[in-house]
């Protein structure tokens, strides 16, 4: 797997941006080398023939047990907002989302 992938600072930075992580230059450098090690290590899975194997996503054999469409009591607004970094008039407040027009 890892053989085809070029792990470099550009890739690490692209991933960091997708993950909303603001990496320092030092962190980026360290990640490049650790990425290589780890991807190299997991490439051992290439040895395993999985041609006719279906993936096992779940840990239990259960199937979905939906609930009835019944209204339950909601949580008081102030309990929810108690954890909010900023709130006003019962809204959660954040710096303005940038909108291009």
């Amino acid at each position: 797997m890892s053989s085809e992938i070029r792990v470099d600072e550009k890739l690490v930075q692209e991933i960091a941006s997708l993950a909303r992580l603001d990496l320092t230059e030092d962190e980026t450098r360290v990640f490049v080398s650790q990425f290589k090690d780890i991807l190299d290590y997991v490439s051992i899975l290439n040895e395993v023939d999985t041609e006719n194997v279906s993936p096992a996503y779940l840990s239990s054999s259960s199937k979905n047990a939906p609930r009835e469409d019944v209204i339950e009591v909601s949580v008081p607004t102030e309990e929810f907002l108690a954890n909010a970094p900023e709130s006003k008039d019962d809204y959660v407040l954040i710096p303005r989302v940038h909108i291009e027009q």
Binding site: M1, V42, L45, V48, T50, V53, S54, P55, A56, Y57
Partner: peptide
């Protein structure tokens, strides 16, 4: 791939 090997 990992999920498939997991099945094994």
């Amino acid at each position: 791939k990992a999920q498939k090997v997991r099945a094994l």
